[in-house]
Amino acid sequence: MSSHGGNSSAANDPRQPSTAKPYEAPAVSPQDLPIDYSGFIAVIFGIAGVLFRYKLSSWVAIIFCAQSLSNMKNIETDLKQVSMAMMFAVMGLVSNYFGPARPGTQRG
């Protein structure tokens, strides 16, 4: 238990309100942020889905978008990449399902 704390600071109260400093969040420059791998993967899959008209790729891009969104820490800085990936993924899906409609085969 706190016998440790008790032992070492038995004599007097260790607290010193006068020296209390409020918390300062360390300033992190945007370059030092950890790389958003899932967002990057999402962009790649999204582009591949659009280029090759491969719907699975677009779906995977959407899944990685979801991962990237759920891991986001700072909305301001991270949203760009994610929304870019999202655009590509949705575009791939739309062109896949609605665009090149061979009569009646791929719709629905």
Binding site: M91, V94, S95, F98, G99, P100, A101, R102, P103
Partner: peptide
Amino acid sequence: ELSRCSVLATTA
């Protein structure tokens, strides 16, 4: 892309 795809369905 959308408009192109819907019109030129033959190529697709």
